[in-house]
Nucleic acid binder design. Structure first.
Lengths: 206, 206, 206, 206
DNA sequence: TATGAATGAGTCTTCATTCAT
DNA sequence: AATGAATGAAGACTCATTCAT
């Protein structure tokens, strides 16, 4: 006769899930081990059967999110040789899958993007990878040569993190919708009648 | 010769400044009153001479940042009747002063944008105000009629917060530079040769 | 061999007992959690395993005393229909059990009667219950019709609290002894030769 | 030109009065020097111009009450040789002046009787003096020879303190009224038909 | 006579973590 | 696989009191 929850893997997974939820809702410091185990129907010492410390479980959550994100982005470089007309659709596909990733586990996204002290690093890493992708594509002539891809990629990350928080995680808009908005913004801007770009003595064109 | 710190207002201001710095560097919970007062050359009880609690001084800091930001944005609507050609320059001016505000007191910006639990609310408020401004300008024909200003303003806030953190606060680029990049991105996008916009059955154009 | 104090209920009871003693001897403010736990052979956090706060354990102590007292007095109304000659003996029994209650746990009595801010309320409640009992008995003709039972019961409470503190708690006299003194005083007074009662223009007889 | 409140004696008296009020209302520990001086329109250091410490001002208040009380009681022994019939009226007069003393400065009475740690001692002293007076009168045959004046005086003090708190200080009954109730109770008791006194094998008669 | 500014000393309370079973 | 009981370490906050002016 198995004891209730006697399957260690189950308990571990349960703790991980609940911890993610607590961290996402309350932040790292306000989350208490006692709350987590209590929601899991366990006691405090049991927690330490599966995780070394509060920090360890948090790191595991952040790590999972981070590596999944990295993998996704690494696999999304535009293949060379696609027709120029296809660029927007390719971008759209990439961004859609990115938003889908961010939306499928809101607690982890919350943690990785907004709670963790690693958040800044994660987004920087993300921006760097995107910048690489974009530069490669830029070299193939898909984007304006003078565009500063460091700034563009940081901007893109900023847009993504903001829309994720404000539109995606609370269910206001679906991934594809958001992706399309972003593509159109980054492709064409919002200006009615394109005219010259702003510049100045001390500024360089984007 | 005046006693060191014998002026209460000086002590208060000092504590406020040091607290901002500690909160910005270490976050709310890791910041200790003992550290703050020690850096100010005071003792713990003195802190409570000027502030009700740790939370109170934090709130004051956040409040100052928030109201300053609000005031700035509220005063920045494009006046109607300017020539269409001037729109980019006006936007540039607005964004420049915004980045300047965000860059002049990095600790407060850090707190208001990234540390406070109010951060989300602050940015939402900011996005809402910007959306209002943009809509007004949209009605005067400066921007594409079909652009969804809710998404645009959220995106703009995302870009601003990201560039502030990655480029402005660590001194990589000056306010004007960033502002110009943002204007160009939002005006025209990064696309080399404008072609049709992406769309889909279930999506509406931006 | 059981670990010392490994039984939670024992620890709780121990803390409760020691706390009562400390509160009784030193008053609420001078009583330190550190002293209580140290006397119990525990550390401070253990205290919070069993009680929410210093105030909570104090309230529990006061509450226990109060409810026990209430129960005792509520159950002590003289049954109607007893012979008039038996009234003193019945009163004697009631007062004896009251003094016994007050004397069996001196620390709690000290707390409930003299330390707690609720003391006044406790004694008022006690006086009100006694007044009710006395009035019922008065209606059955056991006591003089013109006696003001509000004043009498307050007086009785005053006598009880004073004798408890001065004679009972320090062991000078046993419960029965005190009860008998009180009965005789309230029944007959101390006057050698009963003469007329004092009265005055503006006073009503007791 | 005199500074406001430049008269030291005025400030001192003011502090004393306010302190009495605060101590009476809030107890010793909850009373804060900061509150006292603030109500007096002074600052904290000024307090130490007139009193050595918080404890010192408290002691002064208690001392004043105590010595006034002592003086009053000492002067109230029944002169020998009065007619037996006059005893009640003499007692009445004594008790009336006692209640008047207790009622004229409620804050001080509150402090001396209920707040101070000296309260027990004050009442004991009071009981002892009363016992002396009563014994003297008992020897002159005014009271029953077998009455135990130690218990009687303690009881009397108990009645006085209780009626003072419950009836006098909150204005429910005037001094003379209370005094008369007490005299009648102690002279004759409340029994309708005097019958034998309770006694027991192990008890001695009052 | 009065005060602006500052502090020494002390206590409650919290929480992650562990031990023995 | 799980837990009842216990703790080490740390930080916020309070208040009577004093110094220099």
């Amino acid at each position: 006769m198995r004891k209730k929850g006697a399957n260690g893997q189950e308990s571990r997974a349960k703790l991980l899930m609940i911890a993610a939820n607590e961290f996402a809702r309350s932040g790292y410091h306000h989350t208490k081990i006692s709350t987590i185990v209590s929601r899991a129907g366990l006691t405090q010492p049991s927690f330490y059967l599966y995780f070394e410390s509060k920090e360890a479980i948090f790191r595991e959550l952040v790590g999972n999110f981070r590596s999944g994100l990295k993998e996704l982005i690494e696999g999304s470089r535009l293949e060379g040789g696609i027709r120029e007309d296809d660029v927007p659709d390719r971008l759209l596909a990439v961004l859609t899958s990115l938003f889908e990733y961010l939306g499928k586990d809101p607690d982890s996204t919350q943690i990785g993007f907004y709670i963790s002290e690693e958040s800044a690093a994660i987004k920087s890493e993300m921006a760097a990878m995107i910048a690489n992708n974009l530069r490669a594509e830029q070299q193939e002539g898909y984007f304006r040569a003078e565009a500063d891809m460091a700034v563009i990629s940081e901007s893109l990350v900023g847009v993504i993190e903001r829309l994720t928080l404000q539109e995606l995680l609370n269910g206001k808009r679906p991934s594809g919708d958001l992706a399309r908005h972003v593509v159109n913004l980054f492709m064409h801007g919002i200006c009615e009648h394109p005219y010259g770009r702003v510049s100045g003595d001390k500024f360089q064109g984007v």
